[in-house]
Design a protein around this nucleic acid. Structure first.
Lengths: 275, 275
DNA sequence: TATCACGTTCCGCATAGAGAAACAAGTGCG
DNA sequence: CGCACTTGTTTCTCTATGCGGAACGTGATA
């Protein structure tokens, strides 16, 4: 019996999309057999899938090795998203200013499917570079952007994240539910989040929340860098600017602060002033 | 009888990929009916396709309007390509230097399937901005990058481009085969190409060729800007720098000039120094 | 040369998926 | 207010489609 094809969706298409997902930063080039093993499908099936993907330009077949890599068609699609994601459009120039001023790498991340997805990245000139890329997904509980987003979601989402498991990536990763809940409370207090080597050792980050017109936190602005440069003090300093940037982006997305109304947000915005 | 395409590819998958392609800069959001009309498929078929794409995160279904837009999964794929395209990796910082120095928008474009595809874009700070995006495809005969790439391809490719038709986009677009052939010869002479409002009125560009280790021209570095700023003189000046950048990128891709017996030794970062 | 692993092709059967039509849920108009 | 349009979604039936096992070709390795 094959994999349970739950709904009324197309199994062949689903397999093809999963095949596309097999490609990654570390494995940008794959052969038929590799993919068929990853997906548990027969070689002939995968071959047919790849032939179709290649014909449509979604993968590129190397004529010599007969192995496959992602094609440029997906770049087009990516570009379309980028230039239509409102948060991207509005944020780009603010991020550029940030990089110019601090010379630190900065990302824009959004929430999707219990992950943060980087939708924009601006690199600094420093020789030390943290290997991330646009489109990269990370868990919510071990990055500054993830935590700051999570901090402002419904409690049920926090519980779901916990239920899915707090897998440790480094010794610093938060793995205890109660600790996570506590940290999130602190983040709401401060208005921003930090990560000190929680996803990768020696890599720190700071993040501030971005809201849309519904007042929901939908993303974050985050600066990333090596622990050597990202001291506590420096991160506090960066946080100030990140908060003003995130606020500006939020405004452009239609968000406006309602200071004195009886809404569910008494977390005040002491933006420049860390408590 | 349904349209009979190549026997050994999956029609449902092909349709799905074509559905993805329906999305564009101008139409970032589509409904089932629109797509089904574009592709000539029944609504139920398209609905099944979109449901699967949505399930895998390749499109996002708006819960209110029940319309679809591209999902963030394709961003991930795009990011993987970007960080693995050698030409991108090698060129990024050189382009950044260029933008810093001239404050003009610059692209990296590669050849694919009789089109140029922008694989990298760095924007300048100027208020006037030319709306392009990474992944964007343009014809070969009406952009500076396209023409400079075409100039160094086999003659058969030129003829194929001509055969496919030289559609005019502006009054300046080259539409006569003989004129195109002559222009390409001039480009080989000069070593770089320009476009003066050939794709869009009032938008000029300059481009220099990038070669890989097989000495084939596989891409181009190109600066784009409004005609007001991009005078002949300025473009000549930009061309010098673009040529040195494109040469440097070519070197990093394994290309070495064999004109002089001088090996690729002094590949200093001294951009701007002509030759 | 023999063996292995790989990509590719062939083929027959079961089923996945195409489409017509019915259904539901808005939306605009008189 | 209700009617004539949309739109997206579901159901159903039948057959073309695409699945997997096996065979084939080819290039490496020993």
């Amino acid at each position: 019996m094959p994999r349970q094809s739950d709904a009324r969706t197309l199994s062949s298409l689903r397999h093809a999309l999963q095949a596309l997902r097999c490609f990654s930063q570390d494995e940008p080039e794959l052969g038929i057999t590799e993919i068929s093993r990853k997906l548990g499908l027969s070689k002939s099936t995968v071959h047919r899938i790849m032939a179709t993907l290649a014909e449509e330009g979604f993968v590129h077949r190397d004529e010599e090795t007969h192995r496959y890599r992602l094609g440029l068609s997906v770049l087009s699609l990516g570009g379309i998203i980028m230039s239509n994601l409102e948060i991207c459009r509005e944020g780009q120039h603010l991020l550029e200013e940030f990089v110019h001023r601090f010379d630190e790498t900065v990302h824009l991340a959004v929430l999707e499917d219990f992950c943060t997805v980087y939708v924009s990245k601006l690199e600094c000139k420093h020789p030390v570079q943290i290997a991330t890329h646009v489109g990269r997904r990370n868990p919510l509980y071990c990055t500054s952007s993830g935590k700051v987003i999570l901090a402002y979601q419904d409690e049920s989402m926090v519980e779901e994240v916990i239920r899915r498991g707090l897998q440790p990536f480094t010794p610093n990763t938060i793995t205890h539910p109660d600790r996570l809940r506590k940290v999130l409370a602190q983040i709401r207090e401060a208005g921003y989040a930090t990560s000190v080597g929680e996803l990768r050792p020696g890599v720190n980050s700071v993040a501030a929340p971005v809201r849309d017109y519904t007042r929901r936190v939908i993303g974050a602005v985050t600066a990333v860098g090596p622990a050597a440069r990202f001291t506590d003090e420096k991160m506090r300093s960066l946080a100030k600017t990140l908060l003003s940037i995130s606020k500006e982006i939020s405004n452009r997305l239609g968000y406006y602060e309602r200071v004195s109304s009886r809404t569910r947000l008494q977390v005040s915005h002491s933006m420049g002033r860390p408590t």
